[in-house]
């Protein structure tokens, strides 16, 4: 029992140290934080302006394109941050700093991964909150407390899901060039094949299918519900080609995807870390 107590404390100590290091890096090199905030804001202005003269109510359930776009940009901000989460680990691998961690008697080497999860979740939430404040200042509203809960839950699930993929790529790929190239390939196509910029009803059938299984869509739609005046978890959030999905269905699917990804990457991490 005493030993177990020590192990938990040691796990906390090492995870805290690893997370603190990532935050010190962020504090001294804040460009990623600012870029992660700036990019969606620019998108919000430019894309919002693009449809200024579109007919009123051309989008279902929202007054303006800006209100529609807001949810997509909040999700995209969290998604981009999480997708890049493997980079620090990849640099540690390449420059040999990971060996410094592996030589230490860590209670669990999973603390290396855990610290990345904690760091990227906090970073993504902070960036998303700034975007939410910006959309609020632009007059696109703010969710109530329940809505905020839905937004944060959805974002945390998405961040966990994408971070687990990014971290495993950081172990599998040979170097940071390959990882950055893959991030470039994944990033925008996933955005454009989601409901971030347009609803499924605007899309051709094949793209509708892709969009309806896209994890970004599963995160965007509950957030749109969270921004609506009447929050009902059983309300239809997504009219997918294979059937309607409620807000609850979207969050559950995202939850399952996250659990599944964590289960899948576990053996890989064990192999690489032990």
């Amino acid at each position: 029992m005493e030993l177990q107590k020590y192990n938990i404390f040691f796990l906390y100590q090492e995870t805290f140290a690893l997370t603190k290091r990532l935050f010190i890096q962020l504090k001294r090199r804040p460009s990623t934080l600012f870029a992660g905030i700036l990019q969606p804001i620019i998108w919000l202005f430019l894309f919002g302006a693009l449809f200024t003269n579109a007919p009123k109510n051309f989008l279902p359930g929202v007054d303006s394109y800006g209100s529609f776009l807001g949810a997509g940009l909040i999700v995209f901000t969290a998604f981009s941050g999480a997708l890049n989460s493997g980079l620090p680990l990849m640099f540690d691998r390449e420059f040999g700093f990971l060996n410094r961690l592996l030589v230490a008697p860590l209670t669990s080497r999973l603390s290396i991964v855990l610290s990345s999860f904690i760091y990227i979740t906090i970073l993504s939430l902070v960036q998303s909150i700034v975007i939410m404040i910006m959309t609020f200042l632009l007059g696109y509203g703010l969710p109530d407390l329940l809505g905020l809960g839905i937004v944060f839950l959805t974002l945390i699930l998405l961040v966990l899901f994408v971070t687990s993929i990014s971290l495993s790529l950081a172990f599998v790929l040979p170097g940071h060039i390959e990882l950055i190239a893959l991030i470039f390939v994944i990033n925008l196509p996933l955005l454009f094949s989601s409901t971030a910029l347009a609803p499924i009803s605007f899309m051709p059938n094949w793209l509708g299918w892709i969009a309806s299984v896209n994890p970004l869509t599963l995160a965007i739609e509950p957030i749109r519900v969270a921004y609506s005046s009447n929050i009902d978890l059983n309300l239809i959030a997504l009219e997918a080609p294979y059937g309607d999905l409620t807000c609850k269905n979207c969050i559950s699917s995202l939850f399952l995807l996250t659990i599944l990804s964590l289960i899948i990457i576990r053996p890989l991490l064990n192999k690489k870390l032990n």
Binding site: E14, Q25, V103, A104
Partner: peptide, 29 residues
């Protein structure tokens, strides 16, 4: 039981020397 000093020095360029030692000490509990 061991302390290992590798051939290639891998330091975190952003940390100060003191912060690096503090970090390392936490990894050794």
């Amino acid at each position: 039981l061991i302390g290992y000093v590798a051939q290639d020095i891998a330091l975190d360029k952003v940390l100060t020397g003191r912060e690096l030692l503090d970090f390392q000490a936490d990894l050794y509990h």
